[in-house]
């Protein structure tokens, strides 16, 4: 078990290092250069730009730049943002928790919703309900996240006024709220972005869970459970679901990249101050150090997702646990 964990960890470290290296190369090889200002208001004269290149060391040969970056990284330094004039670590320290809150909520919600739909479908597979839900999840699965987000925003935010449309908190009211009130406020702001991210993935989980469940319903032990006189509910939830959970949990672990990619869009739509936004802005402004660091964090999150899925699978399935 320890050796297994060590091997997994070593693999994770190597792949994250590879991600960083490739990102660094791509970012520097891509055309364009760090920008001062916005497209509407590009302020810098060519002279200012040239001086900036020197200040950031961007006029040095690429291998030298990479070596310096790697040396700093090894010391735990992520460098400085060219645009924001602050340490990249500070930028990430603010953004990552927000993304974890959004992505984590969306992941858990989509998993629960996906499981629920999958179970309902499997419970009456080949019924009309099943067919309808299959069609619904297929449609949902093919909906672009961006579009879904905008629709939710227009309907539940602008039209119905049920939920706030942007940000993490109600501007100008924070200091009047108790800490519980603040938590509720954040939760209300979380609903729409999390739903936009979660619904599409819930459809994926549902489809996956349904087929895994239908397959596991064919197992002899399901028949044995029925032969004991258990209710359908117990058969489904206790016997079938438990065994059919592992593939979905693995998928959930593998879906971390989806949530990261989706958060770029959803955070933009809903003004959620997270990693996706940071990455988006950084790519646009060619803020090299920030781009590379977001790739690093994403790599770590993806690896952590896989690791977590392994643990969850081991908890759900003793065969996995005891084999290692």
């Amino acid at each position: 078990m320890l050796r297994f964990a060590a091997r997994r960890l070593a693999f994770a470290v190597v792949s994250v290092a590879a991600v960083v290296f490739i990102t660094f190369l791509l970012v520097h090889a891509a055309p364009g250069e760090p920008m001062l200002g916005t497209p509407e208001r590009a302020l810098a004269s060519p002279e200012t730009m040239a001086r900036q290149r020197t200040l950031f060391g961007l006029d040095r040969p690429l291998p030298e730049q990479f070596l310096r970056y790697a040396r700093n990284l090894a010391r735990g330094e992520l460098g400085e943002s060219f645009v924001l004039h602050r340490p990249v670590a500070a930028v990430l320290a603010e953004a990552v928790p927000n993304t974890l809150l959004l992505g984590g909520t969306a992941l858990v919600a989509s998993l629960l919703l996906g499981l629920a739909i999958g179970v309902v479908q499997a419970a009456r597979h080949h019924s009309r309900t099943d067919t309808l839900l299959s069609a619904a999840t297929l449609v949902l699965y093919s909906v672009p996240v961006f579009w879904l987000g905008l629709v939710l925003l227009l309907v539940f935010g602008e039209r119905l006024h049920w939920l706030p449309v942007s940000g993490m908190t109600s501007a100008g009211l924070e200091d009047r709220l108790s800490s519980l009130g603040r938590a509720v406020d954040v939760a209300r702001h979380l609903v729409l972005p999390a739903a936009s991210l979660a619904l599409v993935q819930a459809a994926a989980f549902a489809r996956f869970q349904r087929s895994a469940l239908v397959e596991s319903l064919d197992a002899e032990y399901i028949r044995a459970a029925r032969a004991k006189g258990l209710t359908e509910r117990a058969v489904l939830l206790k016997h079938a679901l438990r065994g059919a959970l592992a593939p979905t949990l693995t998928l959930a672990g593998l879906s971390v990249p989806y949530f990261l990619a989706g958060s770029v869009l959803v955070e933009s739509i809903f003004g959620w101050p997270g990693l996706g936004r940071v990455a988006y802005d950084a790519i646009f402004a060619r803020d090299y150090n920030v781009i590379t660091a977001t790739a690093l964090v994403s790599g770590v999150l993806v690896a952590a997702g896989n690791l977590l899925a392994d643990v969850a699978v081991a908890i759900a399935d003793p065969r996995v646990r005891l084999d290692q």
Binding site: A219, Y221, A224, A227, T231, R242, G243, R319
Partner: peptide
């Protein structure tokens, strides 16, 4: 359901597959 396993029980031919592996 009240009959199954209670008045009439069933033993299956393949014991490994008739037992739930995760319980």
């Amino acid at each position: 359901r009240a009959v199954r396993g209670n008045h009439v029980a069933l033993v299956f031919q393949e014991p490994l597959s008739a037992l739930n592996p995760v319980l």
